[in-house]
Amino acid sequence: MSRRGAPLDWALGAWGIAFLAVLYLPIALVLAYSFNRNVVNMMVWEGFTLDWYRSIFGLATRLAEDASYVHSTEGLVHAARNSVVVALAATAVSTVVGTATALAMARHRFRLRPLYQALLVMPMVMPDIVLGVALLVFFVGAGMTLGLGTIVMGHCVFLASYVFVVVSARLAGMGADLEEASADLGAGPWTTFRRVTLPQVAPGVAGGALLAFIISMDDLVITYFIAGVESTTLPVFIYGMLRRGMKPEINAIAMLLLAFSFVIAATGLWLRARRR
């Protein structure tokens, strides 16, 4: 680097560190406050405690009863279970559907291809509130009861597009060579798929599935419109809590949720880095 570039490099470095700080400081604050013992004013630090975490899991605490919304952990556990059930089901369906589409789009050319591709991307890029209300109108109009089933269907609409994009990226680096080699060696289409295509796209499919799972667990807006009374998911549950006011155990819930998505995301990113 030339000497003239040095101050610029220094400024960029400072900017970059500040950028990372902006990204992580708010999260770090939530973490810190989740250990705050102060029951009366959650914003004033009084000392370290794990009681908020204990209260979430329904363990004995020394907290006053009224300090916490979570008198019983029932609602929270119920919402968490709903979230996981929805995410698992929606991930399973959308992974299969999105992978099939990625295979089709990567290996075949047809006239309406650009149009179809635009249609595939739409559920991802349009504002989620539009999809949410459209699905609400549709499900109610079709006389379907809002519940876990409708949430799964709604999630599949946009999750399949995410899987499609991730698997397509993997396929783009592959070329048709290996599949042609397999056919050339006498393997039929099914054998080729099982023994060549699948092992090749597997990391992409796994990555797509992880992403779909995280996004499904995270989705608030669409779920908010198409969840029934009995089928609250975790984000909707927390959203409801926050609208009623802030209580300290939200810190702990937020941290657990965060840890959960970070572990899954880190796994996905690590898997991807390892394949290179």
């Binding site: 995270d218 608030l220 949720l257 970070f262 990113l269």
Partner: peptide, 12 residues
């Protein structure tokens, strides 16, 4: 590190 918060829950 930059990508990770993208996966953190929006509401959090």
């Amino acid at each position: 590190l930059v990508t990770l918060p993208f996966f953190a829950n929006l509401i959090v």
